[in-house]
């Protein structure tokens, strides 16, 4: 809703809630970007700063949850206002997990940086590039309550899943042929896993944005059974 609420405090609370989510998103993206740069550029200081700064993201998650609860208790929001409060709290949860993955990547990066250079780190770059775009668009879907953009993320994440599988296959092969580098290759497999999970979290945020914009819950739709065909019988069902 763009028009003003009759209670100024409500508008102030909602604006503050949304801007805290955007601040948290910016910090989580920054942490992810620095974690990846530390890996690709072998920069230990960057990795350390990511680990240190994660607590700012954690603090914001608590602040956003508290602000959301406060708005619900004081103002009983309904319709799109209620959806914005709930979605903002869910966004904060997902962003906190993204920042945790950035910390995981930074910790793996520290270990890789302390050893001999690992050529395979470059394999993570295209995954990161795609995950970063998914994350950017998930945030845009939330900011603009853009259900169409949010709903499209699930399909786009399949490409990230495919790239992740390919990278794991490649790294698994090299584990067999280069046993001396196995520890670092395993660290890199976990980095790839974190990037893949960040894509999943972007999809979650996209789904929440669909709820925000259109009040539709599209989560877990793939697991729902398809409706039975009209006039069909049990014998029509393939074994």
């Amino acid at each position: 809703m763009t028009s003003h609420h009759i209670l100024r405090e409500f508008d102030k609370g909602m604006v503050s809630l949304k801007s805290d989510v955007l601040l948290m998103a910016s910090l989580a993206r920054q942490n992810l970007e620095r974690a990846m740069r530390s890996l690709l550029e072998r920069d230990l200081d960057l990795a350390r700063s990511v680990i240190a700064d994660d607590s700012d993201v954690d603090d914001l998650e608590r602040k956003i949850d508290q602000a959301g609860i406060d708005i619900m208790v004081r103002f009983h929001p309904v319709a799109s206002d209620l959806r914005l409060v709930i979605t903002s709290m869910k966004m904060a949860h997902n962003l906190e997990r993204i920042s945790d993955h950035a910390v995981n990547i930074a910790k793996r990066s520290k270990k890789i940086c302390k050893s001999f250079p690992l050529d395979e780190v470059g394999l993570a770059e295209p995954l990161y590039s795609l995950a970063s775009k998914l994350l950017r668009d998930a945030l845009m879907a939330y900011t603009d309550a853009n259900a169409e953009l949010g709903e499209g993320l699930k399909v786009r994440d399949r490409e990230l899943d495919r790239m992740h599988k390919q990278m794991i296959t490649t790294l698994s092969g090299r584990l067999e042929t280069s046993p001396g580098r196995s520890e670092n290759l395993l660290h890199l497999i976990f980095v790839a896993r974190s990037i893949e999970r960040i894509g999943d979290l972007a999809v979650n945020m996209g789904e929440d944005s669909v709820y925000l914009g259109d009040a539709r819950d599209i989560r877990h739709e793939h697991s729902k059974p398809s409706p039975a065909p009209q006039g069909g019988s049990e014998s029509d069902t393939p074994a």
Binding site: I6, V78, A79, D81, L82
Partner: peptide, 19 residues
């Protein structure tokens, strides 16, 4: 009505945009 009203005027009223 309270989760996702169809008409903008309804949403404005129930969410406290006028009244």
């Amino acid at each position: 009505i309270f989760r996702n009203p169809s008409v903008r005027k309804t949403e404005e009223y129930i969410s406290g945009r006028f009244g």
